[in-house]
Amino acid sequence: MSRPHAGPPESDPAILTRAIESLLTEKGLIDPKALDAMVDTYENKIGPRNGAKVVARAWVDPGYKARLLADATAAIKELGFSGLQGEDMVVVENTADVHNVLVCTLCSCYPWPTLGLPPNWYKAAPYRARVVADPRGVLKEFGLEVPETTEIRTWDTTAELRYLVLPQRPAGTENLSEEQLADLVTRDSMIGVGLAKAARGETRA
């Protein structure tokens, strides 16, 4: 890796990264081009738009939704999403009575094939510590007020099993296409710290 000589000094982790990568490259143990491809895949190809397609399909196709809730891994694979960190999936459905939210208290486990890599707050200490003890308060920090009458279920993801939230379909979207519906599905709504967006012209509940 080359870097310009001007500019601020590199941070310690940046230097350590370069030291490890350059040693392993010299020894022929890794190929920097393979690293480039991996970065590109997770920056540009695998992300929450995949999960949004799963959710939109479940909203328009009751048969698919039933399969998704019964065997999420297989149903998600039907749409072409599988593999690393999505080998065993469970989908949890939000309803008027139950709101689901995901966490990995021990580290950072997250469903990569459907959501991509987790945001930093998901991997950081404050969220991991607090969402299991005070989920309602944590959701307020994301601007989400869950009614007192709605039960909140927090799901602690493990290295083997990954969850995905099936958010509620917004009101007034009966005439939207599957593709238009997918545009309403946000990453945060599939983690459970947000809701799907309201249809254009509708006010958000």
Binding site: I20, Y42, G47, W121, P126
Partner: peptide, 30 residues
């Protein structure tokens, strides 16, 4: 960390890149 107190607010940004700095992407890919 589950249940631990005193770790401060979450402060989720409205958006952020997948990798905030290039080294994060290299470290991930390694």
């Amino acid at each position: 960390l589950g249940g631990m107190h005193g770790l401060g607010p979450i402060n989720p940004p409205a958006s952020e890149p997948v990798f905030r700095e290039p080294w994060e992407g290299r470290a991930f890919a390694m």
